[in-house]
Design a protein around this nucleic acid. Structure first.
Lengths: 217, 217
DNA sequence: GTCTATAAACTGATAGAC
DNA sequence: GTCTATCAGTTTATAGAC
């Protein structure tokens, strides 16, 4: 199971009315995330989401006009989670520590929010038809900024030369795989589901190979 | 576009009747693969598959009784493709050459069969409900066999010690991401779709980082 | 705000004429 | 083998009573 989605508190003191509404919306978003993660957009049904949220179907439509709108809310929550990953890839940081921290943070995200990761992965696999301009704008900007930092480290002779963009593709893939393809990993490891120790081992080895691979160890 | 799926020739000399049937079945499997890749199992509709295969919907049901059966055929074709990847991870091989070859082959697979890779990825993301015992049997056996080889290389002091299973998770992820998440990668690279040079660069850098990371360079 | 009943569209699958 | 017509079931979404 995943942690329930938080419904951004609207700042000002909330009365019991607003509190109740917020609690329901949080339940809806959590239920929606789990159903979308399991079945994808088309496969998810509003009835199932309502059932998991513990409310009648028409009430779900009262809070969220359309399935599309509900999906967009879930997706936006996930993108914010993704971008806000505290990372320390900054010019004045130590490269080895920065990459180690980034890998650990990403695997931690995969462990704590596997459903969110899967909804996002599903969206990408099918060509990102509902992702709007996130990839072209927000993500590209993010990568451009971080790439400059890495280029700086390379020029300063602190690490082996690399194409930072492909490095990120590799880091994203190697870490998110522990959320997106958890069934495959669990099956190969002979488990029913991944244990904390599995994620720790994954982070350790991934960090080791990447750091050595970048000439940082 | 993907290469059309080949319909395993039934050996013996085929008459024009069988040839016609084989051609139609190949068209159906190719259409099915593309629709399943785009929309997932639930999102894919038999009408759309029939339309893309250029035949009326009832004819599609004539060749493939149910949507489930059609999906299973597509899936099986993909699994065979996956397992048959010529790899040189064998005890008497040179580790550096073997890993370099494996990475190149996997990225080549991602380039040549992106749709197949996406259907498989989609299946895994949603918990592999239609994958039968492939993960627990065929794949686990494959990994166990290859892991022994790698353990041997480690014991012989040819490379740094690693958990071979997590190494495979990393290699699979880092290579398949160029098929599964191609939209994301293309967007970040500022392209409409990936160019041959992008795959080459990916293979080169991935190999470099992995080999160095394993103490093979 | 909540719920019963239902509309309107689409789905996988088939019957049966050719 | 091929295709027209259609069935039975589900889907998203809403109307309207409470």
């Amino acid at each position: 199971m995943d942690l329930p989605l938080e419904s951004g508190d609207d700042g000002a003191a909330a009365g019991p009315r607003e509190r109740a509404r917020a609690r329901i919306e949080a339940k809806i978003l959590g239920a929606a995330e789990s159903v979308f993660a399991e079945h994808g957009f088309s496969g998810a049904s509003m009835s199932e989401i309502a059932r998991r949220a513990g409310i009648p179907k028409p009430n779900l439509h009262y809070y969220c006009k359309t399935k599309e709108e509900l999906y967009q809310r879930v997706l936006r929550h996930i993108l914010d989670l993704w971008l806000s990953t505290a990372d320390e890839i900054q010019a004045n940081a130590d490269p080895a520590a920065a990459f180690a921290h980034y890998i650990a943070a990403k695997i931690d995200l995969a462990r704590r929010h596997p459903l969110a990761s899967r909804v996002f992965a599903n969206e990408l696999i099918h060509g990102a038809p509902r992702l709007g301009d996130f990839l072209e704008n927000e993500l590209q900007d993010w990568v451009a900024k971080k790439s400059k930092v890495i280029d700086g480290w390379v020029k300063a002779g602190k690490m082996h030369p690399v194409d930072p963009r492909h490095l990120f593709f590799m880091l994203w893939a190697a870490t998110q795989t522990y959320a997106d393809f958890a069934v495959q990993i669990a099956a190969v490891l002979g488990r029913k589901s991944l244990k904390p120790a599995d994620y720790d081992r994954a982070a350790l080895q991934t960090t080791e190979i990447v750091l050595r691979g970048l000439g940082l160890k």
